[in-house]
Amino acid sequence: MKKLHIWSSLLLGLALLGVAFPAAGSDEVTYKGSTTVLPIAGLLSEALAPNVVFSVQGGGSGTGIAAIIDGTTDIAGSSRYMKLEEFEKAVANGVMPYVWEVAIDTLAIVVHPSNPIEQITYEDLRRIYFGEVTNWSVLGGPDMPIVVVSRDTSSGTYGTFKEVVLENQEVTDGALFQSSNGAMATTVASTPGAIGYVGLGYLQPSLRTLLLAKTAEGPFVGASVETALSLEYPLSRPLFMITNGYPQGAVARVIRFALSDEGQRLVLEAGYAPIRALSE
Protein backbone atom coordinates (compact mmCIF):
# COMPACT_ATOMS: atom_id res chain seq x y z
CA MET A 1 0.00 0.00 0.00
CA LYS A 2 2.73 2.42 0.94
CA LYS A 3 4.52 1.96 -2.37
CA LEU A 4 1.31 2.65 -4.22
CA HIS A 5 0.95 5.97 -2.44
CA ILE A 6 4.45 7.03 -3.36
CA TRP A 7 3.94 6.19 -7.01
CA SER A 8 0.59 7.94 -7.27
CA SER A 9 1.81 11.09 -5.55
CA LEU A 10 4.82 11.12 -7.84
CA LEU A 11 2.54 10.92 -10.89
CA LEU A 12 0.27 13.62 -9.53
CA GLY A 13 3.23 15.85 -8.86
CA LEU A 14 4.47 15.45 -12.44
CA ALA A 15 1.03 16.31 -13.76
CA LEU A 16 0.90 19.46 -11.63
CA LEU A 17 4.34 20.50 -12.85
CA GLY A 18 3.06 20.22 -16.38
CA VAL A 19 0.22 22.62 -15.62
CA ALA A 20 2.41 25.15 -13.87
CA PHE A 21 5.10 25.36 -16.55
CA PRO A 22 3.74 25.20 -20.10
CA ALA A 23 6.27 24.66 -22.82
CA ALA A 24 8.51 27.71 -22.77
CA GLY A 25 9.88 29.54 -25.79
CA SER A 26 6.85 29.49 -28.11
CA ASP A 27 5.01 32.75 -28.83
CA GLU A 28 1.91 31.78 -26.97
CA VAL A 29 -0.42 34.39 -25.51
CA THR A 30 -3.66 33.70 -23.67
CA TYR A 31 -6.76 35.86 -23.41
CA LYS A 32 -9.51 35.40 -20.87
CA GLY A 33 -12.45 37.59 -19.96
CA SER A 34 -15.31 39.68 -21.28
CA THR A 35 -17.52 38.02 -23.84
CA THR A 36 -18.02 41.50 -25.31
CA VAL A 37 -14.32 41.83 -26.08
CA LEU A 38 -14.14 38.19 -27.17
CA PRO A 39 -15.11 38.76 -30.86
CA ILE A 40 -12.30 41.32 -31.13
CA ALA A 41 -9.82 38.95 -29.53
CA GLY A 42 -11.01 36.23 -31.89
CA LEU A 43 -10.36 38.33 -35.01
CA LEU A 44 -6.96 39.46 -33.66
CA SER A 45 -6.08 35.83 -33.04
CA GLU A 46 -6.93 34.85 -36.61
CA ALA A 47 -4.89 37.71 -38.04
CA LEU A 48 -1.87 37.01 -35.79
CA ALA A 49 -1.68 33.31 -36.53
CA PRO A 50 0.65 31.55 -37.04
CA ASN A 51 3.35 33.96 -35.81
CA VAL A 52 1.72 34.36 -32.42
CA VAL A 53 -0.55 31.66 -30.98
CA PHE A 54 -3.20 33.82 -29.34
CA SER A 55 -5.71 31.55 -27.62
CA VAL A 56 -8.89 33.21 -26.39
CA GLN A 57 -11.48 32.20 -23.84
CA GLY A 58 -14.59 33.99 -22.51
CA GLY A 59 -15.98 33.86 -19.01
CA GLY A 60 -16.84 37.50 -18.31
CA SER A 61 -14.93 40.60 -17.27
CA GLY A 62 -14.78 39.54 -13.63
CA THR A 63 -13.30 36.18 -14.56
CA GLY A 64 -10.73 37.81 -16.81
CA ILE A 65 -9.62 40.28 -14.18
CA ALA A 66 -9.45 37.53 -11.57
CA ALA A 67 -7.28 35.56 -13.98
CA ILE A 68 -4.83 38.42 -14.49
CA ILE A 69 -4.64 38.85 -10.71
CA ASP A 70 -3.95 35.13 -10.31
CA GLY A 71 -1.48 35.18 -13.18
CA THR A 72 -3.40 32.52 -15.10
CA THR A 73 -3.77 34.64 -18.25
CA ASP A 74 -1.52 37.01 -20.19
CA ILE A 75 -4.27 39.35 -21.29
CA ALA A 76 -7.60 39.96 -19.58
CA GLY A 77 -10.53 41.39 -21.51
CA SER A 78 -12.94 43.65 -19.70
CA SER A 79 -15.92 45.77 -20.61
CA ARG A 80 -15.51 47.80 -17.43
CA TYR A 81 -12.63 49.46 -15.68
CA MET A 82 -11.00 47.55 -12.85
CA LYS A 83 -12.57 48.03 -9.44
CA LEU A 84 -10.47 49.46 -6.62
CA GLU A 85 -10.49 46.17 -4.67
CA GLU A 86 -9.35 44.32 -7.76
CA PHE A 87 -6.51 46.78 -8.22
CA GLU A 88 -5.47 46.43 -4.60
CA LYS A 89 -5.65 42.67 -4.76
CA ALA A 90 -3.54 42.66 -7.92
CA VAL A 91 -0.89 44.83 -6.35
CA ALA A 92 -0.91 42.72 -3.23
CA ASN A 93 -0.36 39.71 -5.52
CA GLY A 94 2.62 41.42 -7.13
CA VAL A 95 0.72 42.12 -10.35
CA MET A 96 0.80 45.61 -11.86
CA PRO A 97 -2.17 45.91 -14.20
CA TYR A 98 -1.82 48.02 -17.34
CA VAL A 99 -5.17 48.84 -18.88
CA TRP A 100 -5.46 49.42 -22.66
CA GLU A 101 -8.55 50.81 -24.31
CA VAL A 102 -9.02 48.83 -27.52
CA ALA A 103 -12.56 49.68 -28.67
CA ILE A 104 -15.74 51.53 -27.82
CA ASP A 105 -18.71 49.34 -27.20
CA THR A 106 -22.16 50.65 -27.81
CA LEU A 107 -25.15 49.04 -26.16
CA ALA A 108 -28.19 49.11 -28.41
CA ILE A 109 -31.67 48.93 -26.89
CA VAL A 110 -33.59 46.34 -28.88
CA VAL A 111 -37.20 45.17 -29.11
CA HIS A 112 -39.12 42.67 -31.22
CA PRO A 113 -39.51 43.93 -34.83
CA SER A 114 -43.30 43.89 -34.50
CA ASN A 115 -43.14 46.47 -31.70
CA PRO A 116 -44.09 49.95 -33.06
CA ILE A 117 -42.19 51.81 -30.33
CA GLU A 118 -39.38 53.89 -31.90
CA GLN A 119 -37.58 55.71 -29.13
CA ILE A 120 -36.93 55.48 -25.43
CA THR A 121 -35.26 57.43 -22.62
CA TYR A 122 -33.06 56.39 -19.69
CA GLU A 123 -36.01 57.21 -17.41
CA ASP A 124 -38.32 54.84 -19.38
CA LEU A 125 -35.65 52.11 -19.24
CA ARG A 126 -35.32 52.51 -15.49
CA ARG A 127 -39.08 52.23 -14.98
CA ILE A 128 -39.14 49.13 -17.20
CA TYR A 129 -36.10 47.45 -15.65
CA PHE A 130 -37.24 48.21 -12.10
CA GLY A 131 -40.59 46.58 -12.88
CA GLU A 132 -42.60 49.78 -12.42
CA VAL A 133 -43.94 49.82 -15.97
CA THR A 134 -45.14 46.42 -17.14
CA ASN A 135 -47.19 47.16 -20.25
CA TRP A 136 -46.17 48.73 -23.52
CA SER A 137 -49.39 50.81 -23.60
CA VAL A 138 -47.97 53.04 -20.85
CA LEU A 139 -45.19 54.07 -23.24
CA GLY A 140 -47.61 54.65 -26.11
CA GLY A 141 -47.24 51.16 -27.53
CA PRO A 142 -49.75 48.31 -27.94
CA ASP A 143 -51.53 46.69 -24.98
CA MET A 144 -48.93 43.98 -24.40
CA PRO A 145 -47.02 42.91 -21.29
CA ILE A 146 -43.38 43.97 -21.32
CA VAL A 147 -40.93 41.07 -21.11
CA VAL A 148 -37.84 42.54 -19.48
CA VAL A 149 -34.69 40.78 -20.65
CA SER A 150 -31.36 41.37 -18.93
CA ARG A 151 -27.90 39.89 -19.21
CA ASP A 152 -26.66 37.76 -16.35
CA THR A 153 -25.34 39.80 -13.49
CA SER A 154 -21.78 38.56 -13.96
CA SER A 155 -21.43 39.97 -17.49
CA GLY A 156 -19.63 43.22 -18.18
CA THR A 157 -22.52 44.23 -20.42
CA TYR A 158 -24.85 44.01 -17.44
CA GLY A 159 -22.38 45.99 -15.37
CA THR A 160 -22.29 48.86 -17.83
CA PHE A 161 -26.06 48.89 -18.29
CA LYS A 162 -26.60 48.84 -14.55
CA GLU A 163 -24.06 51.55 -13.92
CA VAL A 164 -24.95 53.91 -16.76
CA VAL A 165 -28.70 53.48 -17.13
CA LEU A 166 -29.99 51.98 -13.87
CA GLU A 167 -27.87 54.18 -11.58
CA ASN A 168 -26.52 51.05 -9.88
CA GLN A 169 -29.85 49.69 -8.78
CA GLU A 170 -30.96 46.08 -9.28
CA VAL A 171 -32.99 44.80 -12.19
CA THR A 172 -36.46 43.52 -11.20
CA ASP A 173 -36.74 39.90 -10.08
CA GLY A 174 -39.31 39.33 -12.79
CA ALA A 175 -36.78 39.86 -15.61
CA LEU A 176 -35.38 37.09 -17.77
CA PHE A 177 -31.63 36.70 -17.39
CA GLN A 178 -29.63 35.58 -20.42
CA SER A 179 -26.09 34.30 -20.13
CA SER A 180 -24.79 35.59 -23.50
CA ASN A 181 -25.29 38.29 -26.13
CA GLY A 182 -26.43 35.59 -28.53
CA ALA A 183 -29.07 34.22 -26.16
CA MET A 184 -30.23 37.80 -25.54
CA ALA A 185 -30.61 38.47 -29.28
CA THR A 186 -32.43 35.17 -29.86
CA THR A 187 -34.77 35.76 -26.93
CA VAL A 188 -35.74 39.30 -27.96
CA ALA A 189 -36.12 38.30 -31.61
CA SER A 190 -38.56 35.53 -30.67
CA THR A 191 -40.57 37.31 -27.97
CA PRO A 192 -43.05 39.99 -29.15
CA GLY A 193 -43.17 41.85 -25.82
CA ALA A 194 -39.46 41.74 -25.12
CA ILE A 195 -36.97 44.55 -24.54
CA GLY A 196 -33.26 43.96 -24.12
CA TYR A 197 -29.77 45.35 -24.71
CA VAL A 198 -26.97 43.94 -26.83
CA GLY A 199 -23.54 44.98 -28.03
CA LEU A 200 -23.46 46.65 -31.44
CA GLY A 201 -21.82 43.53 -32.88
CA TYR A 202 -24.97 41.50 -32.26
CA LEU A 203 -27.49 43.73 -34.04
CA GLN A 204 -29.43 41.83 -36.68
CA PRO A 205 -32.47 42.42 -38.91
CA SER A 206 -34.68 40.35 -36.60
CA LEU A 207 -34.18 42.98 -33.88
CA ARG A 208 -35.56 46.50 -33.84
CA THR A 209 -33.11 49.08 -32.48
CA LEU A 210 -34.63 51.95 -30.52
CA LEU A 211 -33.47 55.56 -30.67
CA LEU A 212 -32.13 56.49 -27.26
CA ALA A 213 -31.88 59.71 -25.26
CA LYS A 214 -30.87 60.47 -21.69
CA THR A 215 -33.95 62.63 -21.14
CA ALA A 216 -37.27 63.24 -22.89
CA GLU A 217 -35.83 66.45 -24.36
CA GLY A 218 -33.57 64.40 -26.55
CA PRO A 219 -31.75 64.30 -28.78
CA PHE A 220 -32.77 60.71 -29.70
CA VAL A 221 -29.86 58.94 -31.35
CA GLY A 222 -29.61 55.50 -32.97
CA ALA A 223 -26.78 53.15 -32.06
CA SER A 224 -24.10 52.95 -34.75
CA VAL A 225 -20.36 53.10 -35.19
CA GLU A 226 -20.62 56.74 -36.31
CA THR A 227 -22.68 57.94 -33.36
CA ALA A 228 -20.44 56.08 -30.97
CA LEU A 229 -17.30 57.66 -32.43
CA SER A 230 -18.86 61.09 -32.38
CA LEU A 231 -19.87 60.48 -28.75
CA GLU A 232 -23.44 61.43 -29.67
CA TYR A 233 -24.84 58.07 -28.60
CA PRO A 234 -25.22 58.06 -24.84
CA LEU A 235 -24.96 54.38 -23.98
CA SER A 236 -21.42 53.51 -24.97
CA ARG A 237 -18.38 52.44 -23.04
CA PRO A 238 -14.75 51.69 -23.63
CA LEU A 239 -13.54 48.09 -23.88
CA PHE A 240 -10.21 47.16 -22.34
CA MET A 241 -7.43 44.68 -22.51
CA ILE A 242 -5.39 44.39 -19.33
CA THR A 243 -1.82 43.15 -19.07
CA ASN A 244 0.44 42.36 -16.17
CA GLY A 245 3.03 45.14 -16.26
CA TYR A 246 4.04 46.96 -19.42
CA PRO A 247 3.69 44.34 -22.17
CA GLN A 248 6.79 42.51 -23.30
CA GLY A 249 7.51 40.14 -26.14
CA ALA A 250 4.56 38.32 -27.66
CA VAL A 251 2.05 40.06 -25.40
CA ALA A 252 3.35 43.41 -26.64
CA ARG A 253 2.91 42.26 -30.23
CA VAL A 254 -0.76 41.47 -29.55
CA ILE A 255 -1.51 44.80 -27.83
CA ARG A 256 0.41 46.80 -30.46
CA PHE A 257 -1.50 45.02 -33.20
CA ALA A 258 -4.83 45.66 -31.48
CA LEU A 259 -4.10 49.40 -31.34
CA SER A 260 -2.80 49.64 -34.93
CA ASP A 261 -4.98 50.81 -37.82
CA GLU A 262 -5.21 47.22 -39.00
CA GLY A 263 -6.34 46.07 -35.55
CA GLN A 264 -8.87 48.85 -35.29
CA ARG A 265 -10.36 47.82 -38.64
CA LEU A 266 -10.88 44.39 -37.09
CA VAL A 267 -12.63 46.11 -34.17
CA LEU A 268 -14.97 47.70 -36.71
CA GLU A 269 -15.44 44.34 -38.36
CA ALA A 270 -16.41 42.80 -35.00
CA GLY A 271 -19.20 45.35 -34.75
CA TYR A 272 -17.70 47.86 -32.32
CA ALA A 273 -16.53 51.41 -32.76
CA PRO A 274 -12.76 51.97 -33.08
CA ILE A 275 -11.01 54.20 -30.56
CA ARG A 276 -10.13 56.80 -33.19
CA ALA A 277 -11.22 57.82 -36.66
CA LEU A 278 -9.51 55.63 -39.19
CA SER A 279 -8.08 56.91 -42.44
CA GLU A 280 -9.69 55.21 -45.40
Binding site: G60, G62, E86, D152, T153, S154, S155, G174, S179
Partner: peptide, 19 residues
Protein backbone atom coordinates in the same frame (compact mmCIF):
# COMPACT_ATOMS: atom_id res chain seq x y z
CA UNK B 1 -43.38 31.79 -15.26
CA UNK B 2 -39.64 32.23 -15.68
CA UNK B 3 -37.66 30.48 -12.95
CA UNK B 4 -34.03 30.27 -11.83
CA UNK B 5 -32.79 26.91 -10.61
CA UNK B 6 -29.95 26.45 -8.12
CA UNK B 7 -27.54 25.32 -10.82
CA UNK B 8 -28.42 28.24 -13.09
CA UNK B 9 -28.08 30.64 -10.15
CA UNK B 10 -24.57 29.46 -9.43
CA UNK B 11 -23.56 29.54 -13.09
CA UNK B 12 -24.99 33.02 -13.64
CA UNK B 13 -23.26 34.68 -10.72
CA UNK B 14 -20.10 32.75 -9.93
CA UNK B 15 -18.02 34.82 -12.32
CA UNK B 16 -18.98 38.13 -10.77
CA UNK B 17 -18.70 37.22 -7.13
CA UNK B 18 -15.32 38.41 -5.81
CA UNK B 19 -13.55 35.50 -4.16
Amino acid sequence: RPVRTLTAGIALEMAEAPS
